[in-house]
Design a protein around this nucleic acid. Structure first.
Lengths: 148, 148
DNA sequence: ACTAGATAGTAAGATATCGAACGAAAGGAG
DNA sequence: CTCCTTTCGTTCGATATCTTACTATCTAGT
């Protein structure tokens, strides 16, 4: 990066590299090939409750429905979630965690927390100070034509 | 995210979403399907000079050589770069910008600069203040050994 | 000079992601 | 009720990325 780049340009560049490194770090640490999107969905359901529709999940993660279909199929094949028909809408489904899914999420959370704590300690990252401005940036980027 | 999440966890989560939104925003604005990795390589060569090897480029972007091979093949097929044998090492190649590649990069830079300027104005992002800590985070992720 | 190991680029196969197109079902206007 | 539009999930084809494996070439140690 040099001085000709607008700061925001350089910032997004840096963010892209960090995302890639962090994703790699997480996925390599998993013994069973659990991918970051899989974990993210499991984590979401533990924290905010399951029983949501695939479409709701897709919107929550800013992904297309097609992508969510793929992720849910993988999670179901691993036995981490269960898909049931929506009693109120014959087009829709509902996604539920299985005990295995919940357990696998706990495992990943525990490991990740340990890893990140060690990282933060070694690198002296003040993550809480960065969080608010990045959320503002996300919100600004988010005002875009809706997808799908 | 709630209070149980370590701040760094939430931070990386936010970064992942921003990366996705920014990539989408860029790629949708291109009229000819130019992808972010393609632009990134063109931009790098304009700013830091061409004539590098694929391996050097892969390292610069933290990508595998295989990924860079793919990107360079696309760029060459579009006529944006030219690959020549390295005179000093028969295993290696050298990557050069074509006039078309340079022009396409200028076009994308111009548009992106305008778009980001508007975004920064709308959102009051202090990108320069965020840049240094994120670079520290990147360096930490890049260096810190994984536990497994 | 030979040989073993490292390095350069590529290929194959996997996965995540997107956009486009689809059938099924719901909802609204008449 | 009928037709039109919207919404839900899925499938298909494309692209970027990774890992693994391969060939060709270079380099160092003996």
């Amino acid at each position: 990066m040099n001085d000709q780049d607008p700061a925001l340009f350089a910032l997004l560049n840096e963010i892209g590299i960090i995302e890639q490194l962090a994703r790699n770090r997480f996925e390599r640490a998993q013994p069973d090939g659990l991918r970051l999107p899989h974990f993210t969905v499991l984590n979401h359901m533990v924290r905010l409750g399951d029983g949501k529709t695939p479409g709701q999940l897709a919107r929550a993660f800013q992904l297309t429905k097609a992508t969510m279909t793929n992720t849910l199929q993988r999670l179901e094949a691993r036995g981490f979630i269960r898909l049931e028909p929506d009693p109120d809408d014959a087009r829709a489904k509902r996604v539920f965690l299985t005990p295995e899914g919940r357990a696998r999420r706990e495992e990943a959370v525990a490991f990740t927390a340990t890893d990140l704590a060690a990282l933060a300690q070694r690198a002296d990252i003040r993550a809480d100070a960065l969080l608010a401005p990045l959320r503002a940036l996300r919100t600004a980027l988010d005002r875009d034509p809706r997808r799908n």
